[in-house]
Nucleic acid binder design. Sequence first.
DNA 1: TTATTATCAAAAATTATTCTAAATTTGTAA
DNA 2: TTACAAATTTAGAATAATTTTTGATAATAA
Lengths: 143, 143
Amino acid sequence: MIEHMKKYTVQELAAMLEPSGLRPSPQRLAVLSYLSHSTTHPTVDEIYRALQPDNPSLSRATVYNTLNSLVANGIVRELDIDTSNRRYDFAASAPHAHFFCRNCGRVIDVDMKNIELPRSADFVVEQLNVNFKGLCAECAKAE
Amino acid sequence: MIEHMKKYTVQELAAMLEPSGLRPSPQRLAVLSYLSHSTTHPTVDEIYRALQPDNPSLSRATVYNTLNSLVANGIVRELDIDTSNRRYDFAASAPHAHFFCRNCGRVIDVDMKNIELPRSADFVVEQLNVNFKGLCAECAKAE
DNA sequence: TTATTATCAAAAATTATTCTAAATTTGTAA
DNA sequence: TTACAAATTTAGAATAATTTTTGATAATAA
């Protein structure tokens, strides 16, 4: 997320799928398009419910399958901040961390310019996640 | 994990429960003891299967309940590195990050002396997780 | 065209987790 | 001790998330 609120054309979205050999099916484009302009790190169910009205034939299994292949191809990132629901993030975004509110479950982006992928002989790091947990401003006020 | 491979006595383990008012039941002590000398960030199922032979009456629900109350009282930490299984960590350990191998699923500790909880007016940070994902040395060799 | 492959949807299956209600254990106090 | 209440544990049922299977359809290749 963070500063990539650009609207992508269908052609641009299709071009993201191309290198992986994934066909630009309407379902894939819909999921990708939704993620590309979402700011809420949606769960599978949120994505499904958002797209279903305009894609009446869409199946939940398709959303799962689509997200799995998008993740496998590095087009989309799976957050590991919320253990009870998978949440997704558009991969073409600046490196950032996430804050998870233990009260309302909201996930907030945190800019972290200085974070770098560590190099290590012990393993090949492909992804770095930095997660904060606690209370967001609203919930902290309410407590 | 990391450098706390000390063996705890039953009395020491019981003392950890005391401040929270949790009774030192055999089940709780067994879970806590297991976590205290485990290096693998076990899942619920791994904990259950490890303890079951010596605790034939042990129920999976008890392991879940026990872990939930240990986490709620800050005695044990829940990792959020593996979205398909909850993994646990003994809380009395130095701050560290985790590396998750996408091939074998292994979770490896990474020492990170310099990481600090960020302060922010926007939210109250209670926990910080830094997670790396990729391939561990063995799996990288095999690929 | 025919063959092959990719994609999708629906339902069934699987898995992780929580819930429920009964049984057991514990702490305290008569 | 015994009695009782509260805490804990248990087994299994229920639920929810996710994956797998299957058959149909659509796209591509030969």
